[in-house]
Amino acid sequence: MISLAASESFRILAMRAKPGPEELVTRLYEEAREDLYRYALTFGLAPGEAQEAAQEVFLRLYQSLKKGEDIQNPRAWCFRVAHNLSLKLRARQAPQLPFDLDLEAKLAQAGPGPEASAMERERLLRVHQAIEGLSEQQKRCLFLRMEGLRYPEIAEVLGVSASTVGEFLRRAVTRLRKASRD
């Protein structure tokens, strides 16, 4: 049996173990900022804009935590905010062309390296083309899943049901299978 005193000290320990907003956000910022930056880039934002957006996301996270908002999965929360922010920024830059990442050319370009990497590059290029062939929503599903979000979390970002996420991912995976097998 746990004495009251022991459970009390456990409670205090548990409270101490939970990081405060500043610590939590700083840690997550170190871990996840590059991921968020890349996610923002896939919307066609210019690198400077994508980096600004990624930084902004963490400030908003800090603000929400400080306001006492209960955020179950801060990483998923960040992707949701980054998603919405990127959409907004992309809408604003409407008249300009989206920033061209030119990934295909970069992947196709044979750089110096062992022969095995040429084959690997070939496979990456096929995967890239398969992903480019997906619909925007399917692509978002896949990217967010790659970033570790669970189905309900992806559903919340995209404003669709979790079963729709399952269906989108199934299609994406089917394409990836073909691309990586060929």
Partner: peptide, 27 residues
């Protein structure tokens, strides 16, 4: 297929996308 996606994220997105243009800000 999941493995292919993971490699794509790491190698295609991770290495071929432009790096952040500025140093990361101290928040």
């Amino acid at each position: 297929a999941i493995g292919a996606a993971v490699r794509y994220r790491k190698e295609a997105l991770g290495q071929h996308l432009p790096p952040p243009p500025a140093p990361w800000r101290d928040l």
